[in-house]
């Protein structure tokens, strides 16, 4: 898998820093994500990967730096969180954040919030145009669910809390796809899964990528991204310590040191 350095830059982080009362979770981070690729961020626990995603969605204010997105290079840190999705960004959460008491289908429908009419008075009057829009949204949602085989769609009327663990992770991904983003952010999408499930979800991710989505995913187990990611960033202590193809990054001394500790490099 080769990284294509001519592809357009879809997301750029510039000297991004986040300081949590003395803990530098993200520290002077600069990187560029390119359109059409699957990019992976690897790094040991606590290296600031999730915090980076939270900053992209503007869940926290950054201490300094900026995050530029898309052709217009808008600084996401100037936008409120709920407008970032409309810009073309959607994410999953490391610690699953579904809407447990909503049905599987409704979980996906909520992800279309930026595109549907949620007006108060139209909710009361319920005009024809709205009914048509709602029906269209429902069909699109079912379509999205069907990308995961029968697993999700056969449960579409059940509460999300009744899904198996792996399928909950899938539903999180489905939610992202349904919001039609330009860039999908996946935070440890296979965490806690057994090898079979992991393979299944990785296939799902690759299929989504084939449908034309750009993917940025976090994984702390380095080996998992081999053969999946076109480009890999390695994080440690909140900053990027290596970048390149999987092979380049996995043999980089700084990365080996970060994963195995100093002694492994010396000997």
């Amino acid at each position: 898998m080769a990284a294509d350095d001519t592809a357009a830059i879809i997301l750029a982080s510039e000297s991004l820093t986040k300081n949590f009362g003395g803990v530098l979770a993200v520290n002077d981070l600069s990187l560029e994500v390119r359109e059409g690729e699957i990019t992976a961020i690897i790094g040991p626990n606590g290296s600031g990967k999730t915090t980076f995603f939270n900053l992209i969605m503007h869940l926290y204010d950054a201490t300094s730096g900026q995050i530029l997105f898309g052709g217009e290079r808008r600084n996401l840190l100037d936008l409120p969180t709920h407008e970032i999705n409309a810009q073309g960004l959607a994410r999953t959460f490391q610690t699953l954040r579904l809407f447990p008491n909503l049905t599987v289908l409704e979980n996906v429908l909520v992800a279309m919030s930026s595109r549907v009419n949620a007006g108060f008075f139209s909710a009361l009057a319920k005009p024809k145009s709205l009914r048509r829009q709602d029906k269209g949204a429902e069909e699109a949602a079912l379509e999205t669910l069907s990308m995961f085989g029968a697993r999700l769609i056969s449960m579409c009327n059940e509460p999300a809390s009744s899904l198996s663990y792996a399928n909950r992770r899938r539903l999180e991904i489905a939610r992202c796809v349904a919001s039609r983003p330009k860039l999908i952010l996946l935070d440890e999408p296979v965490a806690g899964m057994n090898p079979t499930e992991t393979r299944g979800v990785i296939e799902d991710i690759q299929r989504i990528h084939e449908k034309g989505h750009t993917v940025l995913l976090i994984e702390h187990d380095m080996k998992l991204v081999e053969g999946v990611a076109h480009r890999v960033f390695a994080f440690d202590h909140g900053t990027k310590i290596a970048e390149g193809t999987f092979r380049e990054v996995s043999t980089h001394p700084a990365v080996i040191e970060a994963y195995l500790g100093k002694r492994a490099v010396r000997h």
């Binding site: 709920h82 809407f99 429908l109 919030s113 930026s114 108060f120 909710a123 919001s179």
Partner: peptide, 27 residues
Amino acid sequence: RLRDSNLGRQWEAIREDEVAARCFGVN
């Protein structure tokens, strides 16, 4: 009417998980 509308569904999303709702465009 409100419950069955997009508005109502987004309300419920806020009730279930505000951060996730926000990330998916719920104002």
